[in-house]
């Protein structure tokens, strides 16, 4: 491209009348290096557009913001202290304040034995159980004493 052609294209360019192809020609002219000294002052402009076209989005994601662990730890400790102090100072409720369900009275009369034979049988079973359990305790005691005595020998 001659200087005259470049100059004419520049006029079209600044008037907003140039085509994309003509603008590419201008860019090529100014970036090629062999520029007319009278037009050289426009070279940085086209160099700028070329450089701007080469900009790409950063591929690496930005590092995630680090959590201020020290601050978080300090806040956690302070929170724990507040909770402990709050629990310490809170008056415990008296037992009487807790609601307790009232037990229904048991009607034992319906379990009352009226038959003599049945009463005898129940009494006998109860006495037998009591006798067995009463004998069990001394047996265990005697056995353990015997083991202790043997161990002491």
């Amino acid at each position: 491209m001659t200087s005259a052609q470049a100059s004419a294209l520049l006029d079209r360019y600044f008037a907003g009348e140039s085509t994309l192809a003509e603008e590419a020609q201008l860019r090529h002219y100014f970036c090629a290096g062999d520029v007319d000294p009278d037009l050289a002052h426009y070279a940085p402009l086209f160099a700028y557009w070329t450089a701007a076209s080469d900009v790409t989005a950063p591929r690496k994601s930005r590092p995630a913001r680090r959590l201020p662990l020290r601050w978080l730890a300090a806040v956690a400790v302070a929170l724990a202290l507040v909770l402990v102090a709050n629990g310490w100072q809170r008056p415990t409720q008296p037992l009487s304040a807790f609601p307790i369900a009232e037990a229904k009275p048991v009607d034992w009369s319906k379990y009352e034995i009226t038959d003599q034979k049945e009463a005898y049988r129940v009494l006998r079973a109860a006495l037998k159980t009591a006798s067995t359990e009463l004998n069990r305790g001394p047996r265990i005691t005697v056995r353990e004493l015997r083991q202790a005595t043997e161990a002491l020998r």
Binding site: Y13, F14, A15, G16, E17, H41, Y42, P44, L45
Partner: peptide, 20 residues
């Protein structure tokens, strides 16, 4: 129109800044 105005403005500003 915007392109024309932008380029014209750019040319003027470049001249004022003594770049062009």
């Amino acid at each position: 129109v915007y392109l024309h105005r932008g380029r014209t403005r750019l040319r003027t500003l470049l001249r004022q800044e003594n770049i062009a």
